[in-house]
Amino acid sequence: MSRAITPQAKAINTGLAWSVALLIAFPILWTVLTSFKPEPQAVASPPIFLGFDWTIQNYIDVQDQRAYFRYFVNSVVISIGSTLLGLIIAIPAAWSMAFVPGARTKDLLMWMLSTKMMPAVGVLVPIYLIFIRLGLLDTRIGLTVVLMLINLPIIIWMLYTYFKEIPADILEAARMDGAGLREEILYVLTPMAVPGIASTVLLNIILAWNESFWTINLTTVNAAPLTAFIAGFSSPQGLFYAKLSAASTMAIAPILIMGWFSQKQLVRGLTFGAVK
C-alpha cells in the first residue's frame, strides 16, 4: 500500500520509526555494549554509554571459567542434528500429502499441529523417567530426538506449503519420461524445492537453538546447550553484569544473524503457511 509522499512526511516517518526500532532493540544493544565494559564500569552510576575502557576480557573469562565452547558445540550439534533428522522424516510425508492428497490429508495436518498444543510440562515426568530408563538423560542423541519430535509438525507443515506450490504437471511430465518415484523426488522435486527446504532448515535451527524447556530439564552437564549455560547465570554472583552480557551476546549472536536473513520465511513458517 505504498503511496506518494512528501520529503517532510518521509523525514518524520524515518525519525519516528527509528526511535521505536531503537527502543525495541535497546536491551540487546545495551547488552552488547555492556559486554565490552570492565565489571566496575558495567554497574557505574550514572551508566556509561560509550566512554568506557573497551575490553574483550569478559569474553575470555566466560570461555575460561565457564567453558562456553562446550555448550556452543552442543547447541550446534543438537539444533542442526534435530533439523536434519526431522527433514529426512518430513520430506517424504510432505511430498505424499502435497502430491497424493487423500480425503483425510487436511485432518492429518490439523492433528499434527494439535500435538504442539500439548503443554510440555504436562508430560515432563514420563519423558524424564523414560529417558532415565533408556539411558538418554543428558545425552545429545536424546535431546536431538526430542527437539526433532517437537518441531516435526512445523517442518512438515512448512514443506507441505512449499511443495503445494510446485505444479503437479512437471512431476507428471517426468513420470511420462520414465522417471521412477526415486528419480522424481531426487532429480525433479528436490531441486525445485531447495528454496523452501532451505527456509525450513533455517527456521527450525532457530527454534531448536532457542528451545529452553526440554534443553534445560533433560540435561545436566554433558549435553547441556547454551540455554542451560545461560540459566546457570540466574543467581547473581558478585559483579557479573559484564560477564553475563558477554555470555548472552555469545549465546544469541549466531542465531540473531541467521534470523535476520530469514525474516520472510519466518512469517510463513510460524503461521503454518496461513500468512505469506
Binding site: 521505536v20 526500532a21 525474516q263
Partner: peptide, 10 residues
C-alpha cells in the same frame, strides 16, 4: 524491530 524474537528465553 524483529531482533528480540531471536533471543532465547533465558
Amino acid at each position: 524491530v524483529i531482533s528480540p524474537f531471536f533471543i532465547m528465553p533465558p
